[in-house]
């Protein structure tokens, strides 16, 4: 019970972090058809910007400034890069963001070094909030939950209650029709791209010190976010939200359940020894399989249900 409750909370924190990343990506992918490889790079940039800013003026200004910086970069990428490449089709756009992700990783390596930077949790939030069955729950995780819940509320209100939100929702499904009605669709694209990048940056600010801030963080996070987007389905923020939470919970629970197929077979009175064929596969503990799970899910969903959980069309 103790393990369950703590893992549930941790999974929730991780899932909300994933949602912060995935929500922007799902909007960009559904609307513009661009599988943005540089999205996770914005997450990394957010963390590094926050690290540098917090060294000079503190964590709280960084919480605002770093996402704004990321958003500005995102707007520039959309206006001066993607629009130009757009003429050559979706694959060219995808390749463009892929090259961008490579370059950003290298630039980060050259600016901040190859090893992880000491980006730490702010001192004001570095205390245990409450204790569950003897395990302390850090205040910073509660803070992460709060930020992501606020962000979720803001997105939801923005998309359903504002004019631009309604235009965005319409452009998700019928961009040509929206353009025909006189809305400036390219500007909507830029807005969404910049907002999505800013959200990814915000995720980096609060996730960078929760995890590790290192040059490889974009390439480890990238595929997982793709899984969430595909799992949730194109054009559905609700699906994306559910998928994020599920993925967070799956990954967290896989880490704490230290069992393998061999343990399962033992229940049926079958003992796996080193002489058994495929004993290596059978004795791999669940935490290690847990790392594979997102990719297995990605492949399975795309093959058997390309429209995902609540998607309106195929990926």
């Amino acid at each position: 019970m103790e393990v369950f409750l703590v893992s549930l909370l941790n999974g929730l924190v991780y899932g909300m972090l994933l949602f912060m990343l995935a929500s922007g990506l799902t909007l960009i992918l559904s609307m513009m058809g661009v599988l943005n490889f540089a999205h996770a790079s914005a997450y990394m940039l957010g963390a590094y910007f926050a690290f540098t800013i917090s060294q000079y003026i503190g964590f709280w200004p960084a919480l605002v400034l770093a996402p704004l910086l990321c958003g500005t970069i995102g707007a520039a990428i959309e206006m001066y890069g993607l629009r130009r490449v757009h003429r050559n089709g979706h694959i060219a756009e995808l390749l463009f963001t892929f090259g961008l992700a490579l370059i950003i990783e290298k630039v980060v390596q050259m600016t901040w070094g190859l090893i992880p930077v000491p980006y730490r949790i702010p001192a004001g939030l570095d205390f245990p909030l409450f204790t569950v069955y003897g395990t302390q729950f850090p205040a910073y995780r509660a803070f992460m939950l709060l930020i992501s819940a606020l962000m979720f509320g803001a997105i939801w209100l923005g998309l359903t209650r504002t004019r631009i939100g309604l235009v965005i929702q319409a452009a998700l499904h019928h961009p040509e029709m929206v353009g025909a009605l006189g809305h400036n669709v390219p500007r909507v694209f830029t807005t969404v791209f910049a907002a999505g990048t800013a959200l990814a940056g915000l995720a980096g600010v609060i996730g960078g010190n929760y995890h590790v801030t290192e040059p490889a963080m974009a390439f480890t996070m990238g595929p997982i976010v793709f899984v969430v987007v595909v799992f949730g389905g194109l054009g559905s923020l609700t699906g994306c939200f559910i998928a994020s939470l599920l993925m967070g919970l799956i990954q967290t629970f896989a880490v704490v359940l230290d069992y393998s197929v061999a343990d399962l077979l033992k229940w049926f009175g079958f003992t796996v020894t080193s002489a058994t064929p495929f004993h290596e596969v059978l004795t791999v503990p669940l935490p290690r399989i847990g790392a594979l799970l997102p990719y297995v899910l990605l492949v399975l969903i795309l093959v058997f249900r390309p429209r995902g959980l609540m998607g309106t069309r195929d990926t």
């Binding site: 058809g33 793709f226 899984v227 195929d314």
Partner: peptide, 28 residues
């Protein structure tokens, strides 16, 4: 598995397969 889809979906399936094999290479 991969050629059941094409375009972006194919790209993502191959990416998943690639990550899967790379992870297996360190595991087995």
């Amino acid at each position: 598995v991969a050629t059941k889809q094409r375009a972006t979906a194919f790209a993502m399936i191959t990416m998943g397969l690639g990550e899967l094999v790379a992870a297996c290479a360190l595991m087995f």
